[in-house]
């Protein structure tokens, strides 16, 4: 991540200077920070709202009920035995499955925080953290509503025609990445015991 960020910045600066458009750099930065401000403000209140809603469900015992349903699956994947953490993970995964991205972010962040506590704020991510983030970097949404909406707006004759390929592709890629992740974690564990 460190290198990607530095590469983006350095090559961006380099290309501006090479084209003799150095004065545009500050304009681009100003525009980007302004649009970031608008984005964060929107995200801030939206996430706060959905965190509030999830808290209602959590206090009403819906979250623990949900995690019981997903428990058999999660027990195989994650090492954590803490019911609070696995509850948060289940909320995030269910929100992702149903495509409520706005509700997935707050539950994902609180699950990540809880995993961080369990990891003693270590600089190296725990096995569970690496696996958990996969459920958020891979799209596991059952029905791709945003894309279907865009397709309908663009005048597609059948906006839903992509649903089946999307589901197949996303679940294959999730399976592949879980396997790859487990393999890399196994290698990491083996190397540290040597």
């Amino acid at each position: 991540m460190n290198y990607i960020f530095s590469f983006f910045l350095l090559s961006g600066l380099g290309f501006f200077l090479a084209q003799g458009k150095g004065e545009e750099i500050i304009t681009v930065i100003t525009d980007a920070t302004a649009s970031c401000g608008g984005f964060v403000l929107k995200l801030l209140f939206l996430t706060a709202f959905f965190s509030g809603i999830i808290q209602i469900g959590e206090d009403a015992g819906m979250v623990s009920a949900l995690s019981k349903i997903l428990a058999p699956l999660l027990k195989r994947l994650f090492k954590t035995k803490n019911p609070d953490i696995s509850g948060k993970i289940s909320v995030n995964i269910s929100a992702n499955l149903m495509g409520i991205g706005n509700a997935a972010t707050p539950s994902g962040l609180s699950a990540m925080k809880a995993l961080d506590e369990a990891n003693n704020h270590n600089e190296t991510p725990s096995d569970d953290m690496c696996l958990f983030i996969l459920f958020n970097t891979c799209s596991i949404q059952l029905i791709p509503t945003t894309i279907m909406g865009l397709r309908a707006m663009a005048g597609s004759t059948n906006p839903a025609s992509v649903v089946l390929p999307v589901i197949l592709v996303s679940f294959c890629s999730l399976l592949c990445s879980i396997t790859l992740c487990k393999l890399l974690l196994w290698l990491r564990a083996k190397r540290s015991t040597l």
């Binding site: 270590n122 991510p125 592949c176 790859l180």
Partner: peptide
Amino acid sequence: TGVKKTKLPLLVGLTA
């Protein structure tokens, strides 16, 4: 989180 080393998740995510 306190995590600084994100190479492994990054590699897996981009491979996916």
